[in-house]
């Protein structure tokens, strides 16, 4: 069991290392050993790291230890869901733009590994530079997705870029639509899981109304 775990962690770290270096062939070597376990691990840790990057939200809402743990796990699982949606978009757009019939099961591991740059999501905690780091990581994800889709879809560089960019843009659009619309799904899930009112810094400022001493 111990050696299996060691080998798994090695494969996970190796895959992420290859991913951060945007080296698709290297990442594929590690994949062969553990199949789904490695891509799923990459996605879950990426989601946890992203939530760590949003530490301010947890702190402002004074989320307790167990709820914090639950929120981190939920974020990890949420990333799996986001990857599944992106894989579905890649499959659909691949069919639309390239013809053929790519299978979601073949694409999903590549999409999950493309979340490797989000392991650095915890760096979003950095004051002032954090939001910039978030943007860099997003673009890094796109670059890796592009490289990984070439072998996954069996297409050339330009075709893979077209599908990756279209899927990435569509995923971003869905994210914005969900977040900025009245649905505010992520916010609702956060409130539910963390057991908090979902306060943000903006709410703190808004509550200090002008010239209303107490």
């Amino acid at each position: 069991m111990g050696s299996w775990l060691g080998e798994y962690v090695n494969a996970l770290m190796g895959t992420v290392g290859c991913g951060l270096a945007v080296d698709s062939s290297c990442a594929a070597q590690h994949l062969a050993q553990f199949a789904w376990a490695v891509p799923v691990g990459v996605g879950v840790v990426a989601g946890i790291s992203l939530m760590v990057g949003q530490w301010a939200l947890l702190a402002i809402n004074r989320v307790g230890r167990w709820r914090t743990l639950l929120t981190l796990v939920a974020s990890g699982l949420g990333t799996l869901l986001a990857a599944a949606i992106e894989a579905a978009l890649v499959t659909g757009l691949g069919w639309l733009l390239l013809g053929g019939s790519p299978r979601i099961g073949a694409v999903l591991p590549s999409v999950l590994i493309a979340f490797a740059p989000y392991w650095l999501g915890f760096l979003v905690v950095l004051p002032y530079t954090g939001p910039g780091v978030a943007r860099i990581v997003k673009v890094w994800h796109l670059l890796l997705l592009w490289q990984l889709l070439r072998p996954a879809l069996g297409v050339g560089s330009t075709a893979a870029l077209a599908v990756a960019a279209a899927a990435w843009l569509a995923a971003e659009a869905i994210d914005v639509a969900i977040e900025r619309s009245p649905i505010r799904l992520r916010e609702r899930v956060f409130c539910l899981v963390s057991g908090s009112p979902g306060l943000t810094g903006r709410d703190l400022m808004a509550s200090a109304k002008m010239g209303e001493p107490r």
Binding site: A56, I60, P127, Y128, T129, G130, T200, G201, L204, A208
Partner: peptide, 14 residues
């Protein structure tokens, strides 16, 4: 930088 950050500034400045 914490003070100038939109996420932390509201708490720090308070």
């Amino acid at each position: 930088f914490v003070s100038s950050d939109r996420r932390y500034g509201p708490v720090f400045n308070l």
